[in-house]
Amino acid sequence: MNWLIAGALIWALGWYVNVRLAALPKSRVTSLLVPVIFGVTLIIIWECVVRGLQIQQVLLPAPSVIAARFASSTSILWQDWVQTVLKGMMSGYVIGCLAAFLTALAVDRFDFLKRGLLPVGNFAAALPIIGMAPILVMWFGFDWQSKAAVVVVMIFFPILVNTVQGLAASDAMQRDLMRTYAAGYWKTLFKLRLPMALPFIFNGLKIATTLALIGAIVAEFFGSPIRGMGFRISTSVGQLALDLVWAEIVVAAITGALFYGAVALLERKWTFWHPSQRS
């Protein structure tokens, strides 16, 4: 009971502080502090509720238990991370991005292909492509190759559609200017159209980061060697070792946020001239 009261008090305190902070003029400090306080309050309340109501370990482990498990099983987590993220996800991401980019260049050269492929690509983006996972696991075996293949299939269309859209972003006036400079196809591509396409391409790349991680993890539900984050999640759920599952989820969340952040940082560096990057 004391734990519950403590949780309610902390909630009230955190919310009060946030209300006061939000009323201040917006600055870098407040816009960073407010969400951090909110997040920390939520975690403390989670801890208090689990202890106060004495929720069983197998239903919802407390954050402290998850943290302890995280610290004690770093070697397992590392091994799974290497298998899923470095081998499965990253190789699939690189291959998928390159394949989609080159296809987009080819599609862009032929108007017929553009009109034919874009609707199909948009259609494919709405499909539950993750369902291809069991087939690809059958074709490429249990190891990371099949996970990379799932990632490639999942990210291909979002990047293709965005890149083709981006390559159309330069207007006729600008292309005419390039022609008056006697610039050929390749020169126009590298000096004008690719830089103009970058914001669109980065949009596709950012969507693809999340899809890639989901693809690599879910593909492991359909079969994998005895390591990998998806494998660990599905088997630990079976053993009701939920603290390990949560630890894997923490790893996945950090990986996803960092990967996305890295791509966003690159975007800021390369497309600093775009209105959305100038605040």
Binding site: N18, P35, F221, A257
Partner: peptide, 26 residues
């Protein structure tokens, strides 16, 4: 509500970068 905006919105955006599907089995 400005307080909800400032506390929740960053988390909503961050949560989009997280493979939420991974917790489905759990």
């Amino acid at each position: 509500n400005r307080t909800i905006d400032m506390s929740v919105m960053p988390w909503v955006i961050t949560s989009q970068t997280i493979p939420i599907l991974a917790i489905a089995p759990m």
